[in-house]
């Protein structure tokens, strides 16, 4: 965890400085003396930088305690998560291009396969049941239409 704390600290410091920089075009104080649009975000950015420095310092002080906490980001379990993330991203793209329902019919089975479902029957039944349930609840019940394929818009 100690290593990651330093990473977090570095990232947050950069974020904090970015916030301050982005707020520069906005006035800190208006001519009337009231705080302007730049006031608050600059404050937040500065506080973030302070906190991240604090984090780095505290990590160094209690180094031993922090070393004990394990943080793993690579293992077979994690690989599955990253695959699922890829599925999610592709789902987003597919939803935008092919519309929600078609995208769902592709990616829900993909997700189920990834989770270890072996029976095709289970996959098909679950996908169609969910599809019908969503259609009834949202399209008919709430009258919210889900994204349509790109060629229909």
């Amino acid at each position: 965890m100690k290593k990651w704390n330093y990473v977090v600290s570095a990232v947050m410091t950069i974020l904090g400085i970015a916030m301050i920089v982005m707020s520069l075009p906005f006035k800190f104080f208006l001519s009337s003396g009231d705080p302007g649009p730049g006031f608050w975000p600059t404050l937040l950015g500065s506080a973030l930088v302070v906190c991240s420095i604090l984090l780095a310092v505290m990590s160094t002080i209690s180094a031993a305690k922090e070393e004990e906490k394990e943080v793993i980001f690579s293992s077979p379990a994690h690989t599955r998560v990253y695959k699922m993330m890829a599925v999610a991203v592709l789902f987003c793209v597919a939803m935008y291009v092919f519309g929600f329902y078609i995208a769902m019919m592709i990616f829900m089975p993909l997700a189920m396969k990834l989770m270890g479902t072996e029976s095709d029957k289970t996959i098909t039944i679950t996908t169609f049941c969910t599809l019908v349930a969503i259609f009834v609840a949202f399209q008919i019940g709430l009258k919210t239409s889900l994204p349509a394929p790109i060629f229909w818009r």
């Binding site: 078609i102 019919m105 592709i106 089975p109 396969k113 095709d120 996959i123 098909t124």
Partner: peptide
């Protein structure tokens, strides 16, 4: 995914 499923998917699409 099995061939049957893909066929079904295309049909429904």
């Amino acid at each position: 995914m099995s061939k049957k499923y893909i066929a079904l998917l295309i049909a429904v699409s």
